[in-house]
């Protein structure tokens, strides 16, 4: 099958249709930026965009992906070597500790900011509430999303 990931076409042979997108990204395509946290859709570490919608890749079987779907992973956030405003803001605010949840956090934040240009703190807390951060960086994540909103073109 063909996958359109980060505006690049990947050809994959003989994929078990029950296999989850997360492990195809990580183990087959080497796109390890999408992280595994729970495998059950609870923690949000595996969040990618499918057609712009934040989606849990750990519970998305390959059979659920249509040929014309566009997939975006954290590797597709920066363009031509320029960091995405969300990445810039997360660096500016020195958000991460262990960092394992950060790809998912940034993918959820990007989806929010592409739909809501000037989110309130409540908008942010609501959109990001299903992304766990075990290190407890929520305060900085919220501040960084507010900052990213200002940096977005």
């Amino acid at each position: 099958m063909q996958l359109n990931i980060n505006d690049k076409i990947y050809n994959i042979d003989q994929i078990d249709s029950n296999r989850k997108l997360l492990w195809v990204l990580r183990d087959e395509l080497g796109l390890i930026g999408t992280r595994y946290g729970c495998g059950a859709g609870f923690c949000g570490a595996c969040t990618v965009h499918i057609n712009g919608q934040p989606t849990r890749s750990c519970i998305t079987p390959m059979s659920a992906i249509a040929p014309d779907d566009t997939i975006r992973t954290v590797e597709g956030l920066s363009e031509n070597g320029n960091l995405h405003p969300v990445q810039q803001a997360f660096i500016e605010l020195q958000v991460p500790q262990c960092g394992w949840c950060m790809s998912g956090q940034m993918m959820s934040a990007t989806a929010l900011l592409e739909q809501t240009h000037n989110p309130s703190r409540e908008d942010i807390r609501s959109a990001m509430k299903s992304n766990y951060c075990r290190c407890g960086c929520y305060h900085r994540i919220a501040l960084a999303v507010e900052r990213a909103a200002k940096l977005m073109p």
Binding site: R26, T34, Y36, V74, Q94, P96, M102
Partner: peptide, 23 residues
């Protein structure tokens, strides 16, 4: 001084740095 973390950019640009990323 609050020097920026030496690992901050790697952690926000999907670098293979954790055990689950190792190949």
């Amino acid at each position: 001084q609050s020097m920026p973390r030496v690992d901050v950019v790697s952690k926000l640009t999907a670098q293979p740095m954790y055990s689950y990323d190792m190949r």
